[in-house]
């Protein structure tokens, strides 16, 4: 296994406000692996953003060690850190008057002199970043004219232009529709491979994280961090530990979240996917049992129950009520 680019050991973090101090977590261990897409998942308020702040050197550790490429993060200057780490944050960017090209050029800031003059090489890197994110046609569009998905891609392009081996993104898929969410994550996964970037994504999007992430970090309140290959964590049932309340759980067979509802006790015969959707609908309606077996038929779809035939699940449920 390759050496990790960021590693934390015995990390303890918290905030100090006035005379009070509030510990967020302690005894955290983690390793960010090179050239891989890692997703950090956890409930709100568990300290994901706090952890990222510490990695960015903005928050002093209370305890433990945070090492970036063989050197403790606290020993890096801001300028040195900016060549190792590029970020995409949640805070909105207000500069609507800026073009995509100008925004991506800002990524070169750590390498420029005080005048902000871009050399030929800088411009090449900026163009390459826009090509990798498929933004080259939008080069001269103003940020205020872009869609949310395009703007997020532009922010990713800016981070790429910063030419740092590590990228950290704080909820890059928030506020985006399903297609854009997949596109962004797919893009990031591609970048981790083709550009050899080590990418850490903080997200709430379990479905998409499972689909695209190579590794997962699961952070839970007051407990240690679970890290591992995504599929390993699924098979070992670790993903379920994200949900301390018993009302939601992760169905590892279907690869998605489910509300923990009572099982429907009924015999259903038919195509596997049809059966599961029918049971889903029955669970939602609170119908837990049916007296006789149900038969499902494909093309045309119909439900046979007792001596009746139903054309849709809706009709069927109405009958059972």
């Amino acid at each position: 296994m390759k050496k990790s680019v960021i590693s934390g050991s015995y990390v303890r973090l918290g905030y100090q406000k006035g005379g009070q101090s509030k510990e967020i977590f302690q005894n955290l261990h983690f390793d960010l692996l090179p050239g891989q897409l890692t997703c950090l998942l956890g409930p709100n308020g568990v300290g994901k953003t706090t952890l990222v702040k510490a990695i960015l050197g903005k928050l002093p550790l209370w305890d433990g060690k945070l090492v970036l490429q063989d050197r403790e993060i606290s020993n890096y200057s801001q300028a040195e850190l900016s060549r190792q780490l590029a970020v995409v944050l949640t805070e909105p960017v207000l500069a609507g008057n800026m073009t995509v090209g100008q925004l991506v050029s800002l990524g070169r800031t750590p390498y420029l002199g005080w005048s902000g003059y871009l050399s030929v090489k800088d411009k090449q890197i900026v163009n390459q970043a826009m090509e990798l994110t498929h933004l080259i046609e939008l080069k001269d569009e103003r940020l205020s004219e872009l869609s949310d998905g395009q703007r997020q891609k532009a922010m990713i392009a800016r981070a790429l232009a910063q030419d740092a081996p590590i990228m950290i993104l704080d909820e890059p898929t928030a506020h985006l529709d399903l297609v854009n969410r997949f596109e962004i994550m797919q893009l990031l996964h591609g970048l981790s491979r083709t550009q050899d970037k080590s990418i850490l994504v903080i997200t709430h999007d379990l479905d998409i994280a499972l689909e695209t992430a190579d590794y997962l970090w699961l952070l839970r309140k007051g407990q240690s961090l679970i890290a591992g290959l995504t599929e390993d964590l699924i098979l070992r049932g670790k993903v379920n530990e994200l949900f301390p309340s018993s009302s939601i759980r992760f169905n590892s067979d279907r690869g998605k979240m489910e509300l923990d509802r009572p099982e429907v006790k009924v015999e259903v015969n038919g195509d596997e996917s049809q059966v599961s959707w029918l049971l889903n609908a029955m669970k939602k309606s609170g119908i837990n049992a049916a007296t006789s077996p149900i038969f499902l038929e494909k093309e045309p779809f119909c439900i046979r129950y007792e001596e009746f035939e139903f054309q849709s699940i809706q009709e069927f449920l109405a009958y059972l009520y």
Partner: peptide
């Protein structure tokens, strides 16, 4: 001002982004 042009440009994205790009 002359020596802060690069920094002011970076600051258009906000203080957090600016400092992540090495601007003091």
């Amino acid at each position: 001002v002359v020596f802060s042009i690069r920094a002011f440009n970076a600051l258009l994205l906000g203080e957090s982004y600016a400092s992540s790009m090495g601007v003091n």
